[in-house]
Amino acid sequence: MAIQISPSILSADFARLAEQAEAVAGSADWLHVDVMDNHFVPNLTLGLPVVESLLKAVSVPLDCHLMIEDPDRWAPAYAEAGAQSVTIHAEAAGAPVRTLREIRAQGARAGLALNPATALDPYADLIGEVDMLLLMTVEPGFGGQRFLDLVLPKIRAARQLISRTGGSVWLQVDGGVSPETVERAAAAGADVFVAGSAVYGADDPAAAVDALRAQAEKAAAQAG
């Protein structure tokens, strides 16, 4: 499986978003955009207008993670605007199949996210509707949290589920990804890693992306 790194601009300087995005353009596969509404999660970040502006200003494809109420209403607009990946939360979606299909119909990759306490099994039948499964490795809402090792068994189970279905679904982890935790997540089966403070808290964000990728690739190879 190919390892991908998606730096989260939640940890970037919001006054210099375009500049900070381009700082990782040569290394990152995606730019992770955390959309929070202060309802589904206890934080307010940015929304569609900022995403539309970023799309005009940056070269890295946008990976939009919607931590919002009523994603059925809002998610397709992010895909229509040009975000190349749009992820909704299972806990918030009222009609996930319809919404995932609408995201795909707009030409974007469709993702489904599960919080740490949300079981995988009830959503196993939706694997065929997604391009990416996102397992939160912290409680969503804030950057800089510690990685929750209790999610590791779910990552392994998700990798087994994906392998059984024969699909090419990506398995993303988000929360607490750092040089100290990325290898555990990769060994468990994750292949797309969201990293915020580990990238934008480093002196050289691009080098931090490269280092995380190398660690994850090594751990995945050893586990495989």
Rank of each mutant, 00 (worst) to 15 (best):
L100C: 02
R104Q: 14
K154E: 08
R101F: 08
G143W: 03
G82T: 01
L133D: 09
R156K: 14
P140S: 07
L114M: 08
A158S: 09
R109A: 13
L100V: 00
L62G: 10
R109V: 13
Q84M: 12
T99F: 10
L126R: 03
G128K: 02
I127Y: 06
V97M: 09
C64S: 05
A77Y: 12
L134Q: 08
E69W: 05
D125I: 04
A105N: 15
D121G: 03
D72F: 03
R101V: 07
G94E: 15
A113W: 00
L126T: 04
D149H: 07
R156W: 01
D121Y: 02
A95I: 15
G144R: 06
T87R: 12
L66W: 02
A81Y: 10
P96A: 13
T87L: 13
G111R: 04
D121R: 04
R101C: 07
L114Q: 04
L135K: 09
M132R: 12
A105C: 15
R73P: 06
D70W: 05
T137V: 00
M132C: 12
R109E: 15
I127K: 04
A83G: 04
D72P: 01
E129W: 14
D131P: 05
T99A: 11
P76E: 14
H65E: 03
A124F: 05
P153H: 06
D121V: 02
L66K: 01
R98T: 05
S85Y: 06
V138S: 12
D125H: 07
P140V: 08
W74V: 14
E91S: 00
A158N: 08
E129N: 13
A117P: 01
R104F: 06
A79V: 06
A77R: 13
T87Y: 14
V151P: 08
L133W: 07
G82C: 01
P96I: 12
M132F: 09
L120R: 14
A124Q: 13
D63N: 09
H65W: 00
A93V: 01
P61Q: 12
T137L: 00
A95L: 15
D125Y: 08
R104A: 06
A93H: 00
G82H: 01
V86Q: 11
A105L: 15
L66D: 04
A92N: 06
A90N: 04
T118H: 01
I103W: 10
P122A: 01
H65D: 04
P96W: 11
L66E: 03
L134C: 09
D70L: 09
P116L: 04
P140K: 07
L133A: 05
G94L: 14
